[in-house]
Design a protein around this nucleic acid. Structure first.
Length: 217
DNA sequence: AAAACGGGGGC
DNA sequence: GCCCCAGTTTT
């Protein structure tokens, strides 16, 4: 597996490629950011950004969304995958935040995960981005990159990937590392045809070297 | 551990 | 057309 030192080297190279890594979801309030992240499950950020302005224009606060008709919410997010489940979940979550949390998005991963439709990944991203809670959300990009670089073993479970990353990256850098890896995975180390020939990390990447060797044959 | 949910986008 | 996408929930 890739050593701690080389993991940090790899991360530095990624940061040089994406120096201003941030989430790409648009939102004006913590609540809207939570909803945007919930909607982004198995959907592209672009498709979410297309729907959320209309949604938030109609229902901008937890209280407003909590009162909304579920069918109306559905219509506003119909262009996003899994829209039926998501409509139900964001309404329920809005109700819970409106009543149980006085309209404020809860600030801990544990509380966030109690909300319907919020799992570990959404909770980690939201807590990290909104409340500076040290967290690494292991989404599909982070998992793929961690395995290609052998930061963890290829057979690692999501939990094992997270543990390995937390072990090798200083806590203060978890949130930024997450965003940096997302962008690197989204635009360069893509799932199907990773751009290994132009990759600054090739010297550190076992799988990339194997891919190039295979290509040469 | 695997299936179900699910429309949109890249190739 | 097929595969993947800032996953969660149920089986």
């Amino acid at each position: 597996m890739l050593s701690k030192k080389k993991t940090l080297e790899a991360l530095e190279l990624m940061k040089e490629m994406y120096p201003d890594a941030e989430g790409e979801l648009r939102a004006e309030t913590p609540f809207q950011y939570l909803v945007a992240v919930m909607l982004s499950a198995q959907a592209t950020d672009a498709s979410v950004n297309k729907a959320t302005p209309n949604l938030f224009e109609a229902y901008s606060t937890p209280h407003a969304l909590a009162q909304a008709d579920e069918a109306d919410i559905r219509d506003l997010i119909r262009t996003i995958g899994l829209y039926k489940t998501k409509a139900k979940n964001i309404k329920k979550t809005a109700q819970e935040i409106d009543t149980t949390y006085q309209g404020q998005v809860p600030t801990t991963i544990k509380e966030l995960m109690k909300l319907p439709g919020v799992g570990q990944k959404t909770a980690n991203v939201v807590a990290g981005d909104l409340f500076n809670v040290p967290a690494i959300a292991v989404d599909t990009h982070v998992e793929r990159i961690s395995k290609r670089l052998r930061i963890c073993k290829k057979s690692a479970t999501l939990q094992e990937v997270e543990t390995e990353l937390m072990k090798k990256i200083p806590k203060e850098e978890w949130v930024l590392a997450h965003h940096t890896m997302i962008l690197f995975g989204r635009y360069h180390c893509v799932a199907r045809s990773p751009k290994c020939t132009t990759c600054p990390l090739i010297e550190l990447c076992l799988e990339g070297q194997q891919r190039l060797k295979k290509q040469a044959n």
